[in-house]
Computed example of a mutant assay.
Amino acid sequence: MNRVLLSLALLAGPFVTVQAQTAPAAPTEPRTIETITATSSKGYSIRVPSGWTPLKNVPGADVAFINKTIGALRPTVTVVVQDIPAELKATLADVRDINERRMPEVVTKLKFLGEKNVKVSGQPAILWSYTGDGEGGTVRWTQIFTLKNNRLYTATLMLPSGTPADLAEQGRAILTSMTLK
Rank of each mutant, 00 (worst) to 15 (best):
N2S: 12
V4Q: 13
L5P: 08
L6M: 11
S7D: 13
L10D: 04
P14Y: 11
V18C: 02
Q19L: 14
P24Y: 01
T28D: 11
E29T: 15
E29Y: 03
R31V: 14
S40H: 08
S40T: 08
G43N: 12
Y44H: 10
S45T: 10
V48S: 01
P54E: 02
P54M: 03
A61M: 02
D62L: 04
V63R: 00
A64Y: 00
F65M: 04
I66Q: 01
N67I: 03
T69Y: 01
I70V: 15
I70G: 02
G71A: 08
A72Q: 13
T76G: 00
V77I: 15
Q82Y: 03
K89N: 15
A90C: 03
A90M: 07
D94I: 09
D94V: 08
V95F: 06
R101P: 10
V106D: 07
L110K: 00
K111G: 12
F112K: 14
L113P: 11
G114P: 10
E115C: 09
Q123C: 13
P124D: 14
I126V: 15
I126L: 12
L127T: 05
L127C: 05
L127E: 15
G132T: 03
G132I: 07
G134R: 00
T138W: 10
R140V: 02
T142R: 07
T142W: 00
Q143Y: 00
I144E: 01
T146F: 02
T146Q: 02
N149F: 04
N149T: 13
N149M: 08
L152A: 10
L159V: 03
L159A: 03
P164M: 10
D166G: 06
D166V: 09
E169S: 14
G171I: 04
T176E: 09
T176S: 15
